[in-house]
Measured scan of single mutants.
Amino acid sequence: MSIQHFRVALIPFFAAFCLPVFAHPETLVKVKDAEDQLGARVGYIELDLNSGKILESFRPEERFPMMSTFKVLLCGAVLSRVDAGQEQLGRRIHYSQNDLVEYSPVTEKHLTDGMTVRELCSAAITMSDNTAANLLLTTIGGPKELTAFLHNMGDHVTRLDRWEPELNEAIPNDERDTTMPAAMATTLRKLLTGELLTLASRQQLIDWMEADKVAGPLLRSALPAGWFIADKSGAGERGSRGIIAALGPDGKPSRIVVIYTTGSQATMDERNRQIAEIGASLIKHW
């Protein structure tokens, strides 16, 4: 067993022997301040990774656009098919120029040779490549099948209805392509620590998230040296922004954090800054 596999296998073990965790309302004060600064709703939840206990939450059962955070769930569904012998990570998928959609920095470079399922998941999570996500959605049967996968996990809230990039439209009061912070946090925890996926697939999923290259201005910008984070960000229309993450000190994750916002007129930089400040408060009061 590799060191990384050992780390993920012992996530519940280490967490069980940690000192009790206590909620700190100071972080919620910052979440509410972010709402004021952005002029928009902000949803927040913080779960203990081992027990699933909610440590703090704000608007945990209000719907927010998922945006690209759905790509972690998508690759979880792909990995479940791999575990069941219905898919192979090494299978190569070929596609054409007509398949390319807006923001496809990886797939646009491989029109000639195609990409493997493993490479597509890596591109979808680490670079948020939209064509990679659409190609992977095709392998599982489309958005409705991802929703069905989530329902089978016990998540009857999260739903995907459309493809990239239309799913980022974020129309107010439109339930399409949305989740709730509580539902997303619980589902992410199941994917990373539950028995739904094999140990190898859980490790692969967290490795992809740990290698995320496009979430630097968010929670990662607030992390002290030595902290662990595996995350996936999302951005959408109407001032929408979000991030889902597993993080913790001492090089291992111990909490799940989900943050979503929508309806702001603020710039992307300002949305990023507010999420980073929430992260800084979380870490300060850990």
Rank of each mutant, 00 (worst) to 15 (best):
P20L: 02
L136Q: 01
V21Q: 05
D269E: 15
I256R: 00
R91T: 08
L191G: 01
R255G: 02
L10W: 07
D129H: 00
T147W: 04
Q204R: 10
E87V: 09
L120T: 04
A23R: 04
E108G: 12
D231N: 05
A132C: 03
E277I: 13
C121E: 01
E195G: 14
S240W: 01
R220I: 03
T198S: 13
A246F: 11
L192N: 02
W208V: 02
W208I: 03
A230W: 03
E270D: 14
R220H: 04
R241W: 02
T126E: 11
M268Q: 08
L188T: 09
L188Q: 03
K284N: 11
I171V: 15
D269Q: 12
D212M: 03
V31N: 02
Q37L: 13
L28G: 08
V157I: 12
L111T: 12
P172I: 12
V117S: 03
R162T: 08
D48K: 04
L89A: 07
F13E: 02
A34P: 02
W163S: 09
A245G: 09
K232Q: 00
T126G: 11
A34K: 04
L111C: 11
V101I: 10
L191M: 14
L79P: 00
D113P: 07
K252R: 13
F228Q: 06
G194E: 14
P224Q: 06
G43T: 01
E237C: 12
E87S: 06
I45C: 14
A245P: 00
S68L: 00
P12A: 13
S240L: 02
Q265V: 12
D177R: 01
L146K: 00
Y260I: 09
D36G: 15
T178I: 04
A34E: 03
T179L: 01
D33A: 15
F149H: 08
M1G: 00
A124C: 08
S221Q: 12
L218H: 03
K71R: 01
L223V: 13
Q204Y: 09
L73T: 08
A84I: 12
L55R: 09
S2A: 09
I283C: 10
T107Q: 01
G236K: 01
A222H: 10
H151F: 09
L74N: 01
S57W: 11
F149T: 08
D113R: 10
G236Q: 02
D250C: 12
I206M: 14
Q88P: 05
E46I: 07
Y44E: 01
T138R: 15
G263S: 07
D33S: 14
D212S: 07
G90A: 13
L49E: 04
H5L: 10
L219W: 04
R63E: 05
L196H: 15
I54M: 11
N272I: 03
L282Q: 06
S122R: 13
M184S: 03
F22L: 13
P60L: 10
A222Y: 09
T126K: 07
L74D: 00
M153N: 10
